[in-house]
Design a protein around this nucleic acid. Structure first.
Length: 556
RNA sequence: GGGCUCGUAGCCCAGCCUGGAUAGGGCGUCGGCCUCCUAAGCCGAAGGUCGCGGGUUCAAAUCCCGCCGAGCCCGCCA
């Protein structure tokens, strides 16, 4: 019955304007003092009508019969801008009913049959995840959650690069250096990998051996050995991801596309196109697509390359899904363009890419090969440690067990939030004091809002019936922000922008805290309404947390 | 050299796609608010050539062109 209140208000404003105008117009959200929606149509008309915007606006205003609209409280003309104000008494009542009614589904989209595949993380199985992978994983995971919430059928993939040089080096290394069984799997693998790389640098004759392994492996030799090593490492990686509340639906092995003949099939298809060229290597000429660099498909020794196999994987995705989304690091920008071009050539579905910049650490450039990185495991431990210090400082009254649970969730959540909050194209320099800031603009700030609500509602649950008197400005802000949630979710999904959700959450928490500080809830004349208002705020917080894969805490 | 991305107060970030009213937050700084639902909070102040230059427009942080600076890529690595 009640559907997306903010959009209903928007619809009313639109039909209101349409009833008196026969030109296109746009609506925007002005600053608080100018109302809730605004149009600058009078400015657009000024030129053709050769009249002043203020006069045009006035004329439009006079034609409108405001009584026909339920949620429009007032319309005014300020210097030519036509501003619409919400009738908050009616609006709030219906909004609260809507949110209560929908609950967990408030803001979600209708189920669609659209199948989406999101590939993310896909770190090489040669060591633990580090900060760079973390960003990829967090963006991918929350995007999957966002699209699911919007009604899509989503499958997440971890594409395992179990082929190529790094695997050969690992295989080579394991013959020379023992695996430390006491260490976490992925860390033990990294030790060997770093040692093997160092050995290769110092002993150039060993290079031949590595190439030999690669060649044999592609023919199917060492298949089980490689799978075992890879699985060994992945077990460690999975443990880390699981602590972050990130889980992939499927692990797709790159080598499978070679062994099951798919790579060869794709190569044959490409051979029949005019883009295919051969000399000592096979390659594609992609100049037509504005890519000067030829795309090499096969080495002179006949082995395939990473991109070749990736094409086969994408053909597979194209056959099984409607929308293909890849989360890539910015070093893969060229690969992304190449893939898009090749998929177009093959007349398959072209993937969408979310390309994120890197996270750098003060220590310098990250390199797993050289052993320069902060592992996500270390990061998680640090965050929890710091969170524990903060929690202990602020909540001396809590029992030890509770403090530990809260710090674990707050620490890991803060890490995720710090990363998901900034738009992907911006590079991040990882700074501890920013990650573990427990004040405003942080996850604890939002969790605190949630905890405050829980506490109040625990004392006094929101009653079924309530009356709305005069709505204060802080209440209006909170009502409006809550009502905008479905719109934000929809826009974020369309733009594939998870950081919008994080920023919305900050805004909601901010507005809540302001309301909470200035308005007494329990014991006030408006108690019943306010309890209902914070109750719906709580639902929106929960739904937003779910999108980000962060667990709400009833107490912090 | 070429391609892509970024440049918004001392520091960090949103807004840019879809142009509009004194450019929003946060950290830090300064000053206030706890006999009352967690002060992990709230209120206030100071702090800006939106990298630079040009163009389009009644109107540009936003669109177009040029430049400067930073990052990434340009491998028979992945």
């Amino acid at each position: 019955m009640f559907q997306k209140m903010f959009e209903r208000f928007e619809e009313e404003v639109k039909s209101c304007l349409k009833s008196v105008l026969d030109v296109d117009f746009t609506l925007e959200e002005p600053k608080e003092k100018f109302g809730d929606l605004s149009t600058n149509v009078a400015f657009k008309l000024a030129k053709s009508l050769k009249r002043k915007p203020v006069e045009i606006a006035e004329e439009i205003l006079n034609k409108i019969n405001i009584r026909k609209y339920k949620y429009i409280h007032k319309i005014e003309n300020i210097n030519g801008y036509i501003n619409f104000h919400i009738d908050y008494n009616k609006f709030a009542k219906d909004l609260i009913l809507e949110v209560k009614n929908k609950g967990k589904l408030f803001g979600s989209g209708l189920k669609t049959r659209k199948r989406v595949v999101i590939e993310h993380t896909s770190a090489n199985p040669d060591g633990p995840l580090h900060v760079g992978h973390l960003r990829n994983a967090i963006i991918g995971d929350s995007l999957a959650r966002l699209l699911r919430f919007n009604g899509y059928e989503v499958e997440t993939h971890y594409y395992v690069n179990d082929m190529g040089r790094q695997v050969a080096i690992l295989l080579f290394g394991l013959k020379k250096f023992p695996l430390d069984k006491k260490k976490k799997n992925d860390h033990a693998i990294a030790d060997v990998y770093v040692k093997a790389n160092k050995y290769l640098e110092e002993n150039s004759e060993a290079e031949k051996e590595v190439r030999e392994i690669m060649k044999k492996y592609e023919k199917g030799i060492f298949k089980t050995e490689v799978r075992n090593i890879v699985e060994y490492c992945l077990k460690g990686i999975r443990e880390t991801l699981s602590r972050l509340n990130i889980k992939h639906d499927k692990f797709i092995y790159e080598s499978d596309f070679v062994f099951n003949g798919e790579v060869e099939n794709v190569l044959n298809r490409l051979k029949r196109t005019r883009f295919y060229k051969e000399n000592e290597v096979s390659y594609l000429d992609l100049k037509e697509f504005g890519i000067d660099k030829e795309l090499i498909l096969k080495r002179s020794d006949g082995t395939t390359l990473y991109t070749t196999r990736d094409i086969a994987y994408h053909v597979f995705k194209s056959r099984n899904f409607d929308i293909i989304i890849d989360i890539f690091g910015s070093d893969h920008k060229l690969v992304a363009r190449q893939l898009k071009a090749v998929l177009k050539i093959l007349q398959e579905k072209e993937p969408e890419f979310i390309i994120h910049e890197f996270i750098s650490i003060p220590e310098g450039k990250i390199s797993t090969r050289r052993g320069i990185y902060i592992s996500v495991d270390t990061l998680i431990e640090e965050c929890i440690k710091k969170a524990y210090e903060e929690v202990s400082k602020r909540r001396k009254d809590l029992p030890e067990e509770k403090k530990r649970i809260i710090s674990e969730k707050l620490g890991i959540g803060s890490l995720k939030f710090y990363i998901v909050r900034v738009s992907p194209e911006r590079k991040i320099t990882f700074k501890w004091d920013e990650v573990l800031n427990f004040e405003r603009n942080s996850l604890p700030y939002i969790q605190y809002a949630y905890a405050r609500i829980c506490k109040v509602l625990k004392k006094k649950p929101a009653p079924e019936n309530f009356e709305i008197y005069n709505v204060t400005q802080n209440e209006k802000n909170l009502i409006k922000t809550v009502s905008k949630f479905p719109k934000i979710v929809k826009e974020a999904a369309e733009k594939r922008s998870v950081h919008m959700i994080a920023n919305y959450l900050l805004q909601l928490a901010d507005i809540f805290h302001r309301f909470y500080n200035s308005e007494r809830i329990i014991g006030s004349k408006e108690e019943a309404f306010r309890l209902n208002l914070i109750n719906v705020t709580k639902i929106v917080l929960e739904n937003s947390f779910k999108i980000l894969g962060i667990e709400p805490l009833e107490e912090i």
